[in-house]
């Protein structure tokens, strides 16, 4: 067997990647840079359009808030799950990933039922006499945010449980014996050791929320457009594929930048330097 033989086994994978990942991506991005010869016009017009900038900022804001809320809600939950015995751990993990087992359209419709004008919350508040008119919660940034957090919290919890499982309980006990109460021991020991997981989870939630389409489409409608829904609008409604390509490129760059920044952050925060987000 020749030395180059083993590399042959890589061929199917490489061909698959090139034809089904690289080629489509290039066919979208190429026209944005080379309409007829090299030009950045498509990009300058995107970044000078206030309407687009507003959508861009809204998208980043939603993704950022979703990531932060998922961290705040996910960390205690994941820690609780990781300290349970095997039986309860299994049950609680199943419960927390249960929403992931249904289609995101169905999940979004569930929130329409809850947040809508005739939804559970409005009906309840009206029945209690707290409000006279239904509150418009649906098709706002708020509803997109709720849907996004609901969508990605399980992902954050799963990532964190994986990391926190590795933290030996002896460490908590050692911290307690040295005079830290449980909360302090958690903040001083568990939290720093969970940083890799928190950052990985944050990247997953942020990029997921940035690119999510179904949830903002169903819960945000045309009033609260985000980049993903904007792409669809440009491409399908206005047939402006070059414009859609620009937005896609912007999204890719944001994702890459965020990942890079979080990685640098992780290396700073975690002196052990064992983070690969």
């Amino acid at each position: 067997m020749k030395k180059s033989m083993p590399y042959l086994f890589l061929l199917p994978g490489i061909v698959l990647l090139i034809f089904f990942l690289m080629v489509p991506l290039f066919s979208i991005l190429w026209p944005t840079l080379f309409p007829e010869g090299f030009s950045l016009n498509a990009y300058t017009s995107f970044f000078t359009d206030e309407y687009y900038i507003e959508i861009l900022i809204r998208t980043i804001r939603i993704a950022l808030i979703a990531a932060i809320v998922c961290i705040i809600m996910g960390v205690p939950t994941a820690y609780f799950i990781s300290r349970c015995n095997a039986k309860w751990k299994g049950i609680l993990i199943a419960v927390s990933i249960f929403p992931m087992l249904t289609n995101s359209v169905v999940r979004s419709f569930a929130w329409i039922n809850i947040l809508g004008k005739n939804g559970v919350i409005n009906n309840m508040l009206m029945a209690l006499g707290v409000i006279d008119q239904p509150i418009g919660m649906l098709y706002t940034e708020f509803s997109v945010l709720i849907g996004t957090i609901y969508l990605f919290l399980p992902l954050m919890i799963m990532t964190l449980v994986g990391v926190m499982d590795q933290i030996d309980n002896d460490m908590m006990e050692a911290a307690e014996s040295l005079g830290a109460n449980k909360l302090k021991a958690f903040i001083k020991v568990v939290l720093p050791l969970s940083v890799p997981g928190i950052l990985t989870g944050a990247v997953l939630v942020f990029t997921g929320a940035l690119t999510a389409y179904t949830t903002p489409q169903l819960l945000g409608g045309n009033k609260s457009l985000v980049l993903a829904t904007l792409i669809y609008q440009r491409a399908m409604t206005l047939n402006d594929w070059s414009g859609a390509g620009v937005i896609a490129a912007v999204m890719i760059i944001i994702t890459l930048v965020v990942m890079k920044v979080l990685n640098i952050l992780a290396a700073r925060l975690d002196k052990r330097g064992e983070v690969d987000a």
């Binding site: 050692a174 014996s177 720093p192 050791l193 052990r272």
Partner: peptide, 20 residues
Amino acid sequence: VPVHKRNFGIVFQSYALFPH
């Protein structure tokens, strides 16, 4: 008395040093 108020020094089999 809760653990953190006892002021006992404990050495664990795993050492339980804080890796960070």
